[in-house]
Nucleic acid binder design. Structure first.
Lengths: 199, 199
DNA sequence: ACCTGAACACCGTTCAAGT
DNA sequence: ACCTGAACACCGTTCAAGT
């Protein structure tokens, strides 16, 4: 009886955080409802009370991923308030990559097709939008006269570069020492930011 | 007996092309040795004669992916011989995206972590390198005086952008009408190429 | 040499009970 | 209401035979 401390309403969270642990250890493909339930100490059917199916658990992971990203970017944006626009953008980029490299499996699940591709799980949108907005502000400040549409294009371009960089590094198509991973991306993105700042 | 036309040495290819069919229909996660073997008409154990395990089949798919990419870029490079350097780079970008959008599941498997992350399957490297070399040539021609190291950085930046763009489009983080997907990327990459061409 | 089939330890999901 | 356990139809992989 003592081990069943989850019947008080936090079983959902217990399952979720165990799932987060597991994917970082075993990789994003290794999520298994049964294994997660087993490690938490409940019957695998109990998990279905809180997650409709496996994809719903995956979506819950993605939600923490987008939220963590949005929170990190927002607080980074505040903290870099007194810096120059260019340095502020760079601080955001660094923070973005930092978070991704800290929890690669979660990052991959967050942007994975399983949860995003068919528009099920609209609850992911809010946090994703929040992260996006910070970037729009930052790029806007870097070139204040730019029309919003162009600023959004620039954000998409930079975001694409950062996202692709992460995946190419993880896939060993880009090889760079761990210590330099973030610094190297700054170098790759610099020409783009230069071009954006003075068109 | 008649249906067993695979015992003549082409079972490996039969399995491989059936696997390619299946992932485009059902998504990259849906590869199953048993299902592939079933559809080809052999016992699932027969597949193990040609692929050591499931990851080996996945790697074989990735090999066709890298090879297709390299071939497409090489022939595109030749065909665009008389164009200006900038137009040549754009032709390569277009071709790259075209191929990815034609067979998204294969593209994702090709650059997926399952096959690339641990350096098993070194046979993938050759084709990947071949594709990379075409891009290095193209970017080099766009700024002939650039040192090789900088040219390689520029290729990594552009490649990251293209790769990230694809995944963000597939994950519905970037929303763009099918007809405009390739054109829109040209617009996103333009500032970067401008900056690279005239530093 | 090459293919088969039973067996093992896993999945996700459904159904019918249990408290 | 919430949790359980048996059952179903799948996996990948191993082992021991079959031709």
């Amino acid at each position: 009886m003592a081990r069943r401390s989850y019947h008080h309403g936090d079983l959902r969270n217990a399952l979720l955080s165990k799932a987060l642990e597991l994917i970082e250890e075993e990789g994003p493909e290794a999520i298994s409802l049964r294994e997660v339930a087993r490690q938490v100490g409940v019957n695998h059917r109990a998990a279905y009370r809180h997650f409709e199916d496996k994809r719903a658990l995956t979506a819950a992971i993605a939600e923490t991923g987008y939220a963590a990203l949005a929170d990190a970017l927002e607080s980074c944006w505040q903290q870099a308030q007194r810096k120059q626009p260019r340095a502020r953008v760079e601080a955001l980029m660094d923070r973005y990559l930092e978070l991704a490299f800290e929890a690669p499996a979660r990052y991959r699940v967050t942007f994975g097709n399983r949860v995003n591709e068919d528009g099920r799980f609209p609850e992911l949108e809010a946090a994703a939008q929040r992260a996006f907005q910070v970037l729009v502000q930052a790029m806007g400040q870097l070139r204040p006269k730019a029309p919003l549409a162009e600023t959004r294009d620039a954000v998409f371009a930079l975001w694409s570069m950062a996202h692709g960089y992460l995946r190419l590094v993880w896939a060993r198509r880009i090889r760079v020492k761990q210590q330099l991973q973030i610094k190297y991306f700054r170098a790759l993105a610099a020409p783009f930011l230069d071009g954006w700042a003075r068109p």
